[in-house]
Deep mutational scan, measured.
Amino acid sequence: TELRLDINGREIKVDGADKETLKELLKLAEKNNDEKAIRIIRHLLER
Protein backbone atom coordinates (compact mmCIF):
# COMPACT_ATOMS: atom_id res chain seq x y z
CA THR A 1 0.00 0.00 0.00
CA GLU A 2 1.05 3.56 -0.59
CA LEU A 3 0.88 6.08 2.23
CA ARG A 4 0.20 9.66 1.20
CA LEU A 5 -0.21 12.66 3.45
CA ASP A 6 -1.77 15.95 2.49
CA ILE A 7 0.65 18.50 3.95
CA ASN A 8 0.18 22.18 3.20
CA GLY A 9 -2.26 21.31 0.45
CA ARG A 10 0.33 19.12 -1.26
CA GLU A 11 -0.14 15.37 -1.35
CA ILE A 12 3.18 13.81 -0.44
CA LYS A 13 4.08 10.14 -0.67
CA VAL A 14 5.73 9.22 2.61
CA ASP A 15 6.24 5.47 2.61
CA GLY A 16 9.64 4.65 1.22
CA ALA A 17 10.90 8.15 1.99
CA ASP A 18 14.31 8.32 3.62
CA LYS A 19 14.78 9.53 7.19
CA GLU A 20 15.92 13.01 6.16
CA THR A 21 12.84 13.50 4.00
CA LEU A 22 10.61 12.26 6.82
CA LYS A 23 12.23 14.72 9.24
CA GLU A 24 11.53 17.58 6.82
CA LEU A 25 7.92 16.42 6.46
CA LEU A 26 7.64 16.22 10.25
CA LYS A 27 8.74 19.86 10.54
CA LEU A 28 6.11 20.86 7.98
CA ALA A 29 3.42 18.86 9.76
CA GLU A 30 4.35 20.38 13.12
CA LYS A 31 4.25 23.88 11.63
CA ASN A 32 0.71 23.13 10.41
CA ASN A 33 -0.30 21.46 13.70
CA ASP A 34 -1.38 18.41 11.70
CA GLU A 35 -1.69 15.83 14.48
CA LYS A 36 -2.53 12.94 12.15
CA ALA A 37 0.47 13.59 9.89
CA ILE A 38 2.77 14.07 12.90
CA ARG A 39 1.66 10.74 14.37
CA ILE A 40 2.12 8.86 11.10
CA ILE A 41 5.54 10.35 10.34
CA ARG A 42 6.81 9.68 13.87
CA HIS A 43 5.64 6.09 13.53
CA LEU A 44 7.57 5.76 10.24
CA LEU A 45 10.69 7.29 11.79
CA GLU A 46 10.62 4.70 14.59
CA ARG A 47 10.85 1.79 12.16
Rank of each mutant, 00 (worst) to 15 (best):
E24W: 15
L28A: 05
N33Q: 08
K27Y: 13
R4N: 11
E11F: 09
R10D: 10
I12C: 03
R4W: 15
R47T: 12
T21F: 10
A17H: 08
D18P: 03
K31A: 12
E46S: 14
E46P: 03
I7F: 12
T1V: 07
I12V: 12
D34F: 04
I40T: 08
I7T: 02
K31Q: 09
D6V: 15
L26D: 00
K13N: 12
A37K: 01
I7P: 01
N8T: 03
T1D: 15
L28W: 13
D15I: 07
L44S: 03
A37G: 03
D15W: 09
L45F: 04
N32T: 13
R10H: 13
T1Q: 08
T21H: 08
T21P: 01
I40K: 04
T21I: 09
R4M: 14
E2W: 13
N8G: 14
E11M: 06
I7V: 06
K36S: 10
A37P: 01
K36E: 10
A37T: 05
T21A: 13
A37M: 04
I40C: 07
D34Q: 04
R42F: 08
E24D: 08
K27E: 08
T1N: 14
I41W: 01
R4S: 13
L26W: 05
I41P: 00
R10I: 14
R47I: 12
I12Q: 03
D15P: 03
R4Q: 14
I7Q: 02
L26G: 00
I12E: 05
L26T: 00
N8Y: 04
G16Y: 11
E35T: 12
L3M: 06
L3A: 07
E35A: 11
L5N: 03
K13F: 14
E2D: 13
A17P: 03
I40D: 02
A37Y: 03
D15F: 08
I38R: 05
L44E: 03
E24K: 13
L3D: 13
N32M: 13
V14S: 02
E30D: 06
K31G: 07
L44A: 10
N32R: 04
E20T: 08
K23V: 07
I41S: 00
K19I: 12
I38H: 03
K31E: 10
N33K: 09
E24C: 10
K31F: 12
L26F: 06
I41K: 00
K31I: 10
L26N: 00
E20Y: 11
L3I: 15
R4F: 14
G9H: 02
T1R: 05
L26M: 08
A37L: 07
R42K: 10
D15Y: 08
D18K: 04
K36Q: 09
L28H: 06
L3W: 04
N33E: 07
I12K: 01
T1H: 12
A29V: 07
E2A: 05
E20M: 06
I12F: 15
G16T: 14
A17R: 11
L5G: 04
N8W: 04
I38N: 01
R10W: 13
D34I: 04
E11V: 12
N33P: 02
L5Y: 02
K27D: 06
E24P: 01
E35N: 08
I38K: 04
K23P: 01
G16Q: 11
L44W: 15
D15N: 13
L44K: 02
